[in-house]
Nucleic acid binder design. Structure first.
Length: 571
RNA sequence: CGGGGUGUAGCGCAGCCUGGUAGCGCACCUGCCUUGGGAGCAGGGGGUCGGAGGUUCGAAUCCUCUCGCCCCGACCA
């Protein structure tokens, strides 16, 4: 492709509403343009990267035995009513009516549609296993779209759905997808982790998220430094520290802590580490129960673990009026001693000795407090958020925490949708059996964004070869110099014939602008054709990731480039 | 949804407080000049100042409403 025939609207400055590197760079490099909040046009350069990821996904899905199909984006309400998600899904589901006033939605995911297809086409266990996928635009009316393609409302997703006769078959389908995902993200040149994930309120068994490691990631994950345990912090378990029988020393005593309401304030005021305090959280479940949750002062509550333990969908902090009602004091001074409600605590609290808790009296805390002696805990549970330094639940190793961008998710669905929609087959015995399903998603645009997040510098993007919009960029320094044009075009044609994706910068611009654009758009290999080097029959080669320039005889350049492109693809 | 902010040329911004016929940089067009890291000079095009209503002789500026966009939001006793 010649740049003079291309649309490459690069920007010197980043638009004010872009926050993170990938968003800024994709806008500046002319890959995307915003149309509305969370809705983007993919410009030619951006689309090429998107297509690269799609193609890798397609190849690996096909290799894993999945079949591509394409479902509609506009889906009748009645399908969603059958699964009862029409009511459950909430505002993320964009609903609309046609001219006959029939209700539809823009489908944010396709369990209903695919299940409908399968129930109408698959009758026998002999047709299983089946794994169907599509690569399609999805719409979710996110509360807060942000970070460009990272969290858009409209986005491109690969979603796959597997159907098996039984759990063993479903496990095998899941394993295949897990492996395919490993291949896909490896081929994309990403540094990632597959982590155990919370299954959310869909319930069901296992689930893994594929996380690209990046500081700007919206998810927190932990991984073990010894074994391969890795999990989303929402899910991460923590090895129990060895417990010695606590030996209470002190006597309980009320201390004045005027106006000191937070853990940090109280700890500082009393000159104690936060770990000597017990944090007393008063929460209310969605069923209306109010209870106290205790944690070591320097720990954070993992609300998902709490919900799972309490068997509820969400909990909220009790409001000020009810804090007063429960404790007799304003918020900031709640403690477990003498508290008249159910009390549960994180395991760690059991080992704490002579600690400080709220006194349930305004401007007062109690010191010398000991669990078991001074108050009763109904149950000790794993409730805290895992963090760096915590023990691995699988081995003697230590957990390390990271930020991650969720680019893929594999999930065992069970029979939720097949039962709701009546997707059954006859088994060997001629008996009707509900299909066991799995679903598997990959955010295509997000994968491109994550790759940029992970591969950029101050000057711009540094694309991994596999998803670069072009593999080689040839910059003609003096496009009016016939020698330069001739040599450059010859190389260009050689590369094209070899199937290399090459972009020829034949614009009549100053060298500086061309180099800046080249760095910005991040094509992995750059060849500079200038009249000086050409006098010695040489081109200049520069790898975007490395930066150093090297001279190369013109007749050796094409073969070298072809080899280098392939070398970087295999990696 | 709550809190905060913002909306002026394609992009980045000033002007608003203190009302008086809209400006800067980049980009774009023409010409000259220049050509190894976003050159220079000269000329030029482009704006219903997000929208509606109001106050006023006069509104980008003040008031009311409205829409868009951005940021933060269980953080904890």
């Amino acid at each position: 492709m010649r740049l003079t025939n291309y649309l490459l609207p690069t920007l010197k400055e980043s638009p004010a509403d872009a926050e993170i590197a990938s968003h800024k760079l994709m806008l500046r490099a002319g890959m995307i343009r915003k149309v509305a909040a969370g809705i983007y046009t993919y410009l030619p350069l951006g689309l090429r990267s998107v297509r690269k990821v799609e193609q890798i996904v397609r190849e690996e899905m096909d290799r894993a035995g999945a079949l591509e199909l394409l479902m509609p984006m506009v889906v009748p309400a009645e399908l969603w009513q059958e699964s009862e998600r029409w009511e459950q899904y909430g505002k993320e589901l964009l609903r609309l009516r046609d001219r006959k006033d029939t209700e539809f939605c823009l489908s944010p995911t396709h369990e209903e549609v695919i299940t409908d297809v399968v129930r109408g086409t698959v009758r026998s266990y002999r047709q299983l296993p089946l794994n169907l996928y599509q690569i399609q635009g999805k719409f979710r009316d996110e509360i807060r779209p942000r970070f460009g393609l990272m969290r858009g409302r409209e986005f491109i997703m690969k979603d796959a759905y597997s159907f098996d006769l039984d759990d063993a078959g479903a496990d095998s389908s899941y394993e295949k997808m897990y492996q395919a995902y490993q291949n896909i993200f490896k081929r994309c040149g990403l540094e990632f982790r597959a982590v155990e994930a919370d299954t959310g309120n869909i319930g069901g068994s296992s689930s893994h998220e594929f996380m690209v490691l990046a500081d700007s990631g919206e998810d927190a994950i932990v991984s073990c430094d010894c074994c391969d345990y890795a999990a989303n912090v929402e899910k991460a378990q923590i090895r129990l520290a060895r417990q010695e029988e606590p030996q209470p020393q002190g006597e309980i005593a009320q201390v004045a802590t005027p106006g000191k309401k937070t853990i940090a304030e109280v700890a500082q005021f009393l000159g104690l580490p936060e770990s000597r305090l017990i944090k007393t959280l008063l929460v209310r479940t969605d069923a209306g129960e109010q209870l106290a949750v205790l944690l070591r002062g320097d720990r954070d509550l993992n609300e998902i673990k709490l919900c799972r333990f309490l068997d509820c969908v969400e909990v909220e902090m009790v409001d000020e009026a009810n804090v007063v009602k429960m404790t007799g004091a304003p918020s900031g001074f709640a403690g477990p001693v003498g508290l008249d409600c159910r009390i549960i605590a994180d395991h760690e609290v059991r080992t704490m000795v002579d600690c400080v808790v709220g006194a349930n009296i305004k401007d007062s805390h109690c010191s010398g407090v000991n669990p078991g002696r001074d108050f009763e805990v109904e149950q000790y549970v794993d409730l805290r958020q895992a963090q760096t330094g915590d023990g691995c639940p699988r081995c003697a190793g230590t957990l390390q925490s990271w930020r991650g961008i969720e680019v893929g998710h594999v999930f065992k669905l069970g029979t939720k949708y097949s039962q709701a929609l009546g997707a059954t087959v006859l088994d060997r015995n001629g008996k009707d059996v509900a299909l066991v399903m799995g679903c598997y998603g990959i955010g295509i645009g997000r994968t491109v964004a994550a790759a940029i997040e992970q591969n950029h510098d101050d000057n711009g993007i540094i694309f991994p070869m596999a998803i670069a919009p072009f593999q080689v960029l040839i910059t003609l320094l003096n496009p009016k110099d016939q020698q330069v044009v001739k040599a450059g075009e010859e190389l260009y044609n050689q590369l094209l014939q070899a199937g290399i994706e090459v972009l020829l910068d034949d614009r009549d611009e100053r060298p500086g602008s061309k180099f800046k654009d080249a760095d910005l758009i991040g094509i992995p290999i750059r060849v500079t054709v200038g009249n000086k080097a050409l006098k010695d029959d040489q081109f200049e080669i520069q790898l975007r990731a490395v930066g150093e320039r090297q001279m190369m005889p013109t007749d050796e350049t094409a073969p070298w480039l072809i080899a280098e492109v392939n070398r970087q693809l295999v990696r």
